[in-house]
Design a binder for these strands. Structure first.
Lengths: 117, 117
DNA sequence: CGAGGTGCATCAGTGCCATAATACAGCCAT
DNA sequence: ATGGCTGTATTATGGCACTGATGCACCTCG
């Protein structure tokens, strides 16, 4: 009834990007470590290597990942914290206001749902 | 830096749909009242009439709006509450879990942000 | 010097979205 | 009845995002 913002029909490269970002923040990809190669991650996720590359792209643009051509991509020092700070900033500025007003309209209170975990 | 879920580059017909839904829930389009005509709303919003029609489409499919051919479209009795209930349901089931875990990863607590209004 | 692993550029295909130009069917007030 | 308002169906078109297949440039290791 409501085709709103389901993560399902979201572009694959964005889902991958979120997933990788989460892995970096959580330390699943530690700083200094090498990321899975585009082909490896593509095979694992059942996606196209180029789609994975597109997901990786932003991280190197933002300087969170260092590319050694012919070798691989490595997580830069301080990437986790920088990434978290940046994501937090944009979340609060662009996403939360809409979510907040939307919940308000629906008669929901974030404080009540906070405990649900 | 983060092209995540900006309402900006969302399809027009979906933005219109959300906007109309909000107007119904808030009572800006009271029950029994006639909605703006496709052409009128299109002109006002600078969109194409067919795009507006596409936005209206779902509401009649869901029986929240009644069409009187040659006259206009009217908000059905009980539409506001039914709409709110449906949106609340899908929000809690599909959107909130992701938001919740995302905030958790970023070190944010919904309860803290609730007061900000 | 190859072999096999990297990332990356190029080109092509597909589908959704939005717009446009008409045209039609129904209702209503003048 | 006629003009003017409703929603709707049709067809075509341009743009853009997403995905995909292929091949090339680069590096490391044995």
């Amino acid at each position: 009834m409501n085709p709103n913002r389901p993560s399902s029909n979201r572009p694959v490269y964005l889902k991958l990007r979120d997933q990788i970002a989460a892995a970096i923040i959580d330390g699943a990809y530690p700083e200094g470590a090498m990321l899975p190669s585009v082909r490896a991650l593509a095979a694992e996720q059942g996606a196209n290597p180029l789609t994975v590359a597109k997901a990786y792209q932003q991280f190197q643009n933002d300087g969170l990942v260092e590319v050694q051509r012919g070798v691989g991509m490595y997580v830069v020092r301080g990437a986790a914290e920088r990434l978290r700070a940046a994501e937090r900033e944009t979340f609060l500025r662009e996403e939360w206001p809409e979510i907040r007003s939307r919940m308000q309209r629906l008669g929901l209170d974030p404080a009540d749902l906070a405990v649900v975990l």
